[in-house]
Nucleic acid binder design. Structure first.
Length: 145
DNA sequence: GCCAACGTTGGC
DNA sequence: GCCAACGTTGGC
């Protein structure tokens, strides 16, 4: 799961019991998020910042329910075209699991052949939520400092 | 700040 | 349904 640390970082995640993962407004990312189940783990990835890469781990504590911000005209995530009877966008809630001692950089992830199939390291990737295979998960866990 | 890559929009 | 124009993402 990607986040801009200037907006919401692994430290923010650490500071609260439960954090809403709102504002995903991309259908493909939404579909991946819909597949997330309570108890699932996720890497937290810091994007658009000085230290780009995986910063820690979160877990899903509530799965797939309506993201209310889509109906709030004052929200930056407001979507006028979403019908309340058939909401377009969903959220999950996540909780802090661990912050890594140092961010595992994108350049290291890209340099690792075992991770070549990950959408994250592929050209032009823009998904804010994307799947990780069990093998990739284990491999990345082994890379953290 | 630049710019490539991508998703979305809307006219036709 | 095509596709050009546009807006956004995100690494660098």
């Amino acid at each position: 799961m990607k986040t801009e640390p200037d907006v919401f970082s692994i430290k923010d995640l650490l500071s609260q019991d439960v954090s809403p993962w709102e504002g995903v407004r991309n259908y493909q990312a939404r579909n991946f998020m819909k597949e997330m189940k309570e108890g699932d783990l996720a890497f937290i990835y810091h994007s658009s910042c000085k230290d780009v890469g995986i910063a820690g781990v979160a877990k899903v504590v509530r799965e797939n329910y309506v993201d209310a911000t889509q109906f709030d005209p004052d929200s930056p995530y407001f979507d006028a075209k979403s019908d309340p009877a058939k909401p377009r966008w969903i959220r999950v809630d996540v909780a802090f699991v661990e912050a890594w001692p140092r961010v595992l950089s994108l350049s290291r992830l890209k340099a690792d052949e075992a991770l070549a199939e990950m959408p994250l390291v592929q050209k032009g990737n823009r998904l804010s939520v994307m799947p990780v295979t069990e093998a990739q998960w284990q491999h990345i866990q082994g890379m953290k400092a």
